[in-house]
Design a protein around this nucleic acid. Sequence first.
DNA 1: ATGAAAGCGCTAACAC
DNA 2: GTGTTAGCGCTTTCAT
Lengths: 346, 346
Amino acid sequence: MEKKNKITIYDIAKEANVSPSMVSRVYNKKAGVSRGKRERIESLIEKYNYVPDEYAKSLKKESTKCIGIIVSDVCNPFFARILYECEQIAEKNGYSVFSFETHDSPEIEMRFMNMLSAQKMEAIILLGGESDWITIEHDYSACVQRIAKNTPIITIGRMECENVYNVITDEARAMRTILEYLIGLGHRSFFFLGGMSRTRSYADKVDQFTKTLCDYNIPKEKSMICMCGYEKESGYREMLKVLQQEEYPTVVIAINEIVAIGAIRAIKERNLNIPSDISVVCFDNSFISESMTPMLTAVGCNYEKFAQRLIYTALDAVNEAGRYTAGKIEIIESVFVIRNSVKSFN
Amino acid sequence: MEKKNKITIYDIAKEANVSPSMVSRVYNKKAGVSRGKRERIESLIEKYNYVPDEYAKSLKKESTKCIGIIVSDVCNPFFARILYECEQIAEKNGYSVFSFETHDSPEIEMRFMNMLSAQKMEAIILLGGESDWITIEHDYSACVQRIAKNTPIITIGRMECENVYNVITDEARAMRTILEYLIGLGHRSFFFLGGMSRTRSYADKVDQFTKTLCDYNIPKEKSMICMCGYEKESGYREMLKVLQQEEYPTVVIAINEIVAIGAIRAIKERNLNIPSDISVVCFDNSFISESMTPMLTAVGCNYEKFAQRLIYTALDAVNEAGRYTAGKIEIIESVFVIRNSVKSFN
DNA sequence: ATGAAAGCGCTAACAC
DNA sequence: GTGTTAGCGCTTTCAT
């Protein structure tokens, strides 16, 4: 490929012996061009593969019909699935989705936010990342605030800020649902595995974990919490440790499917059976939960609905024409799917 | 949010009583601005959240340092992982990755390709989609050809075209490796499950499947091929059908992990044991393979290496300065991981 | 039917 | 130090 000498509208015009506006008219299929010239210009466009520069065009245009989604990790089925659904819905509404991955780096996240704003994305959706932290650093919060002045931001965390919308899952409710189910089956000791103290989604779960135990008068001493992140390696390691103890909880509640995978591996390695020896439940409920042996009882969000709220909130923020309704903070209820990984003591 | 009246460099200049170039200098931290004005302008920039329009900027700039990746489905761990690795490597080389999902629609794929080209992406990487088909439709091929005139395209399929580079996995070799391993363990009947006849990756596998059987003088009659796509539902359904027969192969070779999940479900539902009753191996080898029970013996690509070749090929095509070496077609060898899902008859 | 010209927002070369 | 100007590629009046 030789030097980048992209063909412009002028090149075409010159060779066709017409003015640039003629070429523009032909390219954009506008009326009012004589047959002869139209054909001449068309063949030149063909010949040189002329494609108008989007940047030059956008300098004039107001709306880009594009939404940017910044996601921390696409390898996590939870995020992959949400992204997938968002794209479907955006597509249906005539919008294109640009997506970007940050690998959990707030710096990269901020860089992308700036870039997307400057690229005139009509809205930015933040999936994971620092916006879901409990205490958000000043730099980050300032960045969001600044960008939100021009571009609405939708997060699945909880940030209070002008033009920032929160669409969140009800983690507390989900945790309570799980626990009440387990308690109903006779469980009295629980192992909550995984998570990171800095995230909102973890904090909500832990709070509800202790609260529910308290509400049901279940002694806390027999239960355990191990905040070990979201990786299968740490899930495996920590589960192994617990299983080495003389006595351990009757059920492990994994913060996501990845951690559950690690825990299950540890359990099987110790030749323990699920659920007869120990039960397993987890959050997120993507295709992973029903692929494991045994299939995992899990709570997860309704992905279609979640994505729908995300996109509609974005579109609503863009054209406040009101075709969609959006509140500043919206809570999506979760779904609870009972499968075969929990033992009943009744 | 009121009407979009994005702040421009002129607005700032006017209010600060200076010329636009002054504002530009301040924003871009260039030297040669008096202390007083610099501060005045800075505070105005702050006040109005002025961010220069990327489009206007790019009208001048030559290189965007951006690569576009078009992927058919991020929910497939295979693609998710490649995307993930590509982003890491691009990042390290100072490039940003824009990614787009097509949900297997060639139309959307073409639309994105056009868009990315007009957006001055320096290269476009095609992950899955029509570029991996055996017979490519005219429209699509014309589109690729046209765009490749301006922007190098890297695909994981096989397309012969000026400025289109192929980085592919050696499916035939992978299939042969699997079969030779199985044959060595005494297997003589095989069930190749999943795939789509239109894709190159499927055709290569099937060809080698029959060829290897032939080379080892294994009667074809006892083996089976079922081309049922890439979904777990179809894997489940077809596996179930086969298990209802009086006699069936001793091992199933699933085209990917998703199909394997379906097949395994069917096997377990029939109360058959893996690997004592029937063995399972699969292609792709992401975290799924080692999460199943038993852990799956699998062939897959070396993701890091694959992504690296993809990105380096792209960068090489961009700046033929030669920092990276790229051939027109590059084959990445696969890795074979033996786990616990295959029975030995020896 | 066609062309000239202005302007989108920004940067950089050039004057002062 | 600071302002003026031209130009990036395109579209869109507005004349002709």
